[in-house]
């Protein structure tokens, strides 16, 4: 296997150039997928036979919950890369992805509560799925707080990487909580490996929304990372010429 791309990631300049090329593609596909998914899911997908229209919140809830967990796994991978290979870009990715992941977790919890009230009869229940998701939110808060509290960048990177790594144990607990224990939350509808538990005309908009959320996350992450790379490398000559080009171009 060719690992040159991985070693190239060690160079912030290379990352800045390549991400600039990817960004428009990701941004436009996110906008397109989300627009199609929202209209299709909220207006055209059929109602559910039991829950009526209130089930449509699934088109926000499930993609947000997917992202919340995937982003955390990404943080842990970035943490390992940062700890083992001492790659600076891994720390940039970790710090910049954490707030997005926290927002996704918050959206998943909020839409879940709004959905729970009419269907279950309660905003919140201390069942295993809901509680482990709340713990995920606090893990994100911990990483954000730790990153900001330590002023030495190398120690902050190391501490955040360790916390991200330790917290990843929570991810399988979230995923399998509905199977290991009795919970009020139903098992997963959107499965990659098995036949989905809903008909195609309900499932396809959900797929579009999930892909749209991933593209949205990637686009926002790249934008945040590019800004952070410029900030951290502000003394290097390539950043100075880049900024000069940007400022000169806008005048």
């Amino acid at each position: 296997m060719n690992w040159t791309w991985f070693h190239k990631l060690g160079s912030p300049k290379w990352f800045y150039e390549i991400s600039g090329r990817w960004l428009p593609w990701l941004g436009w596909s996110a906008a397109l997928l989300l627009a199609v998914g929202v209209v299709w899911g909220l207006a055209f997908a059929p109602q559910d036979y039991q829950q009526g229209n209130s089930f449509r919140i699934i088109y926000i809830h499930v993609p947000a919950a997917f992202l919340a967990q995937s982003v955390y796994v990404m943080l842990a991978v970035a943490g390992v890369v940062g700890l083992v290979w001492k790659m600076k870009l891994a720390d940039v990715a970790l710090q910049q992805a954490a707030p997005i992941g926290a927002w996704m977790t918050f959206i998943a919890l909020l839409t879940g509560a709004v959905w729970g009230k009419p269907t279950w009869g309660a905003w919140w229940v201390w069942d295993a799925r809901l509680t482990s998701m709340l713990i995920l939110l606090f893990l994100y808060f911990g990483i954000i707080a730790l990153g900001n509290a330590i002023s030495n960048r190398d120690s902050a990177a190391k501490a955040c990487a360790v916390l991200a790594l330790v917290g990843v144990v929570n991810i399988p607990i979230i995923k399998y909580s509905v199977e290991w224990w009795n919970t009020l939350h139903q098992p997963a509808t959107f499965k990659i490996t098995e036949k989905p538990a809903m008909p195609m005309e309900m499932w396809l908009p959900l797929l579009v929304m999930v892909l749209g959320f991933y593209c949205f996350f990637a686009a926002v992450l790249l934008m945040r990372m590019r800004l952070e790379v410029l900030r951290r490398e502000s003394r290097s000559s390539w950043v100075k010429s880049e900024i000069k080009g940007l400022v000169g171009g806008s005048r």
């Binding site: 109602q47 559910d48 036979y49 699934i58 279950w120 009020l184 139903q186 509808t189 538990a197 309900m202």
Partner: peptide, 17 residues
Amino acid sequence: DEVLAKHDENYMPPEVT
């Protein structure tokens, strides 16, 4: 003193039901 409804992971349109 409290009854919560549990629903499953299967969704379908009313016509299908």
